[in-house]
Each structure stands twice: as structure tokens, then as C-alpha cells.
Computed example of a mutant assay.
Amino acid sequence: MSAAGHPEENRSRVAAALTDAEFVRLVGTADGDALAAAGLVARGLDAAGVPYQASLAAVPDSPATDADCTVAIGHPAGDVVVVDDSLAVEAANIVTEFAPEAVDPELALAGSICAGVEPSGRPLERADLDRRPGVAIPIGDPIEGLAGTTLLHASFSGDGRAVEDVLSTLDAPDDRELASLVALSAIEGAPPRAAEAVERALRPYVTDRFETLGGLADVLDALARTQPGTGIALALGHEVETAAIDAWRAHGQRAHTALREADTGRYDGVYVVRIDDASPALLGTVARLCFWYRSPEPIALAVTDGGAAAVGAGVDAPFRAAETALGGRVLVRDTHGVATFDGTISGFTAAFREAL
């Protein structure tokens, strides 16, 4: 059963499957959109009185057999499969079928930002958010916020002192001046697509939780990749803001530092970032930042021994070829791919390049 293809009928069938179950497993991919979607479905199940368990993984395992219904969020291995441009918005549409009062429109919109989808439609109407000039960060301090955000990558990213130095060139900047400075810094020396990417971090929607909608999205994505338990608690509305910001800050710093210090190689069709001893969670963020802000090629591949992540059109075939050559497990959704395997950086890179 899928939540895609024939939206109205499928959503009703999915809603019935969830509310008829005695126990539901929610299994999502380790990214902010899937985390938000899992949180929305979990809130609906709470409202309906249906027990559940939620988990996230970079490449989820085959579903356990102890649940009446397994919901696969962002991957194909489940009784119910939630797939869409934004998993969170589709999850909100499903939950609206059986527990509309449980839907948090801000959470759905934050998930859509994680998926690279512009907030729109019914969730945006329900949220009724104002927009302001500036940059989407999850805290009020612009120095710490710009150092930690993974919505963009610039010369100062990951380094609070570097942010201070850049901001010192302005005399008490207002939000518009700050946004202009950030935009110019992000596109300097970057591929043309950076201009599109940085727009998503500007003129944010204002929220009570984490300052901006984009800031909430950034925190969700960091938690999904590094502390999924805390992420699920946050998506359920629990007060874990301090732990969430700590995890977000640490993840952002690691990702920016890894991208800046990694050994890189440019090949026909792919830009490779080689990182020693990195988790799949870190690789996914590095690959995304590299694609939008550093890669001169149409695909960015971040790889370490035993793991890889890539962003760009046409990543499916090379990932499948590498899976065949090295074994392991692969998950590809749209222009994003992730793999775990028993092999080396050079072995995966060679298999990936050969299949391009």
C-alpha cells in the first residue's frame, strides 16, 4: 500500500490501516523530512490511541514482523510506504484523514524545507506565519547561528571567530544587510546553483520554536542524522530544545570542517570528497553542502571506508553498480543516495565512477 499515486484514495486507505492496527512501527530514513513525517504520524497515532514505535536509519533494515502495520517513510520496505516530494507534508495529509487536530503545520513545513521544497499549500495556510528579512537560523545569536547552520556553506561556516570577522565589516547590520552579506559570501567561488540554494536560507518564516522555520528544519535534519531519539522527542513536542541545539551545533561544525579539510577529486561527472572515519549521517550533510556550494560537477559524492552519500541527478545507477560490486546496502530517493558497504574509499569511488 502506498501513500502516493492516487492521493485521496490512498490516504484514506493508509489512515484506515493505521487506526485499525493494534501496534504500528514507523521506520524512517535518517533525514529531517522523514523525522518530521514520523513525528506527524506518531502524533496522529497518539490521538487515535494506537501504540507505536518509531526509528530512523540511514539505510533502514527490512521491517520487523511484530507489528500489525509497518510504515516505511522515505524507503520501500513496509506495509505502508510514504513517498512524496515532501514526506512530512504527505504525512500531514494522511493524519488529517483520522486526527486533524494532531497535525502540527509548522512541523510539516519544516520537513518540506529539509526536502528542498518551498513551503506552500494547506500547511502554510494553517500555520499563518510571518516572514521577515534575514537568515534562517534556529537561535537568536547571529554569530553562533551562522557558524552552525547547514542551510548554506561559506568561508565562515563552522567557525564562530570567522563569522565575527565577517560581521565586523558591517556597522550594526540590520537583517537585510546580514542577508546580503551571507548571500554574497555563499556564492563566492561557488557553482551557479549556490545562488538558488542560498535563497532558501533567506527571508525566513518566523516561529516561536527555534526562531525560524528554516532553523527548525536545520535542527530536525541534524537530529535525524546524529540523535534520532532526541529528534523524535522534539517532533513529538517534548521540551528538548537545549539538547537539540547542542546536537545541531556539533553536527554543523563537523560537516563544514569535513568539507573544508577533506581530500577532494574532480572527475568527469562527479566531484568526490574523501573523508576518513565519517558516519553515514555526516556524509549525507557533506554531500548536500558540497553539491550546492562546492561541486563543479553535476554529482557530489562524499565517501569513507564503509559508507557513502551522493547528491545529484542520475545517482541511482552508479549506486546500484557499486552495491553489486561491493555488496552492502543502498538507498536512493530522487537525487539523493546513501550506501553502507564492506569496502574502501577507493573501491567504492572506482565502482561509482565506472557506472557513470
Rank of each mutant, 00 (worst) to 15 (best):
T29H: 04
A115E: 01
T70S: 13
A186L: 05
V338A: 13
P60V: 04
R126W: 15
Y271P: 07
R320E: 10
T349M: 09
D171K: 01
L170S: 11
H75E: 12
L282V: 06
P296M: 12
A48R: 06
G44N: 09
A186Y: 02
V338F: 07
A309S: 14
A308K: 03
I73K: 00
G343L: 00
E125L: 12
G44Q: 03
A4C: 09
R249W: 11
P191D: 14
S157M: 02
L181F: 09
V80S: 08
I345Q: 14
T264V: 12
L146A: 14
V166D: 13
A102R: 06
V82C: 10
V89W: 00
D68I: 03
G269N: 02
E177P: 02
I299N: 04
S120P: 11
A91H: 09
R131M: 13
V219H: 09
S180P: 02
T344G: 01
P138Q: 08
S180R: 08
V163K: 02
F291H: 15
V166R: 14
H153D: 14
G328Y: 02
V95K: 00
L56Y: 00
L283D: 13
V332P: 01
A54K: 01
V303F: 01
P119V: 06
P191I: 06
D305T: 07
L326T: 01
D334C: 06
A136R: 13
L184Q: 15
S62C: 11
V83Y: 08
R320M: 10
L26I: 13
A255P: 05
R126D: 15
A194W: 12
D128S: 14
E106L: 08
A54R: 02
A30W: 00
S168P: 08
P63A: 04
A244S: 15
S295W: 11
R260L: 15
T212Q: 12
D46G: 08
T96H: 12
D79V: 00
D171R: 12
W248V: 02
G312Y: 05
A262T: 08
P100I: 01
L167G: 09
V338H: 11
I245R: 07
A77E: 15
A183D: 03
Y52K: 03
L289D: 10
G134I: 12
D263L: 08
G215R: 10
R25S: 09
A310L: 04
I143W: 07
T285P: 08
P173T: 10
T96C: 08
